[in-house]
């Protein structure tokens, strides 16, 4: 049985009260102010499309791109779902910023000891069996916390109960291999600023297709180069030998006529 946690965000229920951001800021001790975009001080933010509000935050992917690209393993995927970050390991290469398909990590550019900042999926609260601060604060149930399998079933149920109200898609179910944040919406997700080109394959697979060839390059390449050296070296040895032979033979004839 899967213990993987998730959040279901029902776009039709969100009224744009921004309580989620307020609770998030309190939980993470960030300066309280309304912010429209993800930033160092806003790990979640609401963006408005016509009458609809969309919550942005780290999607806590099942096969996270950031975790795969981090050279030192500063980013890790926890069993319960959160993608955790260890600033003590981070070397600041910023590959995660470059690679994240959702443009989530934000960098402390003004610091001389910068770290990235992003939603933590309230990992410490999850460990205590409590829901994330934002889900707890949501007054309308637009953000609901629970087991991922259960929430997927619930989302499917809501869509089939009111097929005219929702587009038949749960965003995050298989997008980039599945995420911990699941969305259902009354309009196509492209109209809500979601990237429609991401596909279902986890992005780290694209890298693996190249990286998996490394052992082959090393072993086959090593043997091949060694072989080439052996052949060419042998050839020049033989040439050198034949050259000396030619030089020596006539001189011997002269010595013994």
């Amino acid at each position: 049985m899967s213990q993987k946690k998730a959040m279901l965000i029902d776009v039709t229920l969100c009224v744009g009260c921004n309580a989620c951001q307020g609770a998030c800021k309190e939980e993470n001790q960030l300066p309280p102010s309304d912010e429209k975009y993800l930033s160092l001080t806003a790990f979640t933010a609401l963006s408005k499309y016509n009458d609809l509000y969309i919550r942005r935050m780290c999607q806590h992917c099942d096969v996270p791109t950031c975790v795969s690209v981090c050279p030192v393993g500063a980013l890790t995927k926890m069993e319960a779902g959160p993608v955790a970050y260890d600033g003590e390991k981070c070397i600041g290469c910023r590959y995660c910023l470059q690679a994240c398909p959702f443009h989530v990590p934000k960098y402390e550019w003004s610091s001389t000891q910068p770290r990235i900042q992003k939603c933590k999926f309230c990992a410490s609260r999850l460990a205590q069996g409590r829901p994330p601060a934002c889900a707890e604060a949501c007054p309308t149930g637009a953000t609901k916390f629970g087991d991922r399998d259960g929430l997927l079933a619930e989302a499917a149920g809501r869509i089939s109960a009111e097929p005219t109200k929702f587009v038949p898609r749960i965003y995050g179910r298989d997008d980039v291999g599945g995420t911990s944040m699941l969305y259902i919406s009354p309009v196509p997700f492209e109209q809500l600023g979601f990237d429609a080109r991401l596909g279902k394959t986890p992005l780290p697979m694209l890298t693996m297709s190249a990286l998996s060839k490394v052992p082959n390059v090393l072993s086959v390449g090593g043997v091949m180069l060694g072989g080439i050296w052996w052949i060419t070296n042998r050839r020049s040895e033989v040439q050198a030998f034949e050259a000396t032979e030619k030089k020596n033979r006539p001189s011997r004839h002269e010595d013994n006529p």
Partner: peptide, 20 residues
């Protein structure tokens, strides 16, 4: 690097899935 003082980390902290 954002943390030049951590430049040596890749020597001891590995992530074989990372191109970097």
């Amino acid at each position: 690097l954002g943390r030049p003082d951590h430049f040596w980390h890749p020597m001891v902290m590995w992530n074989p899935k990372s191109v970097m």
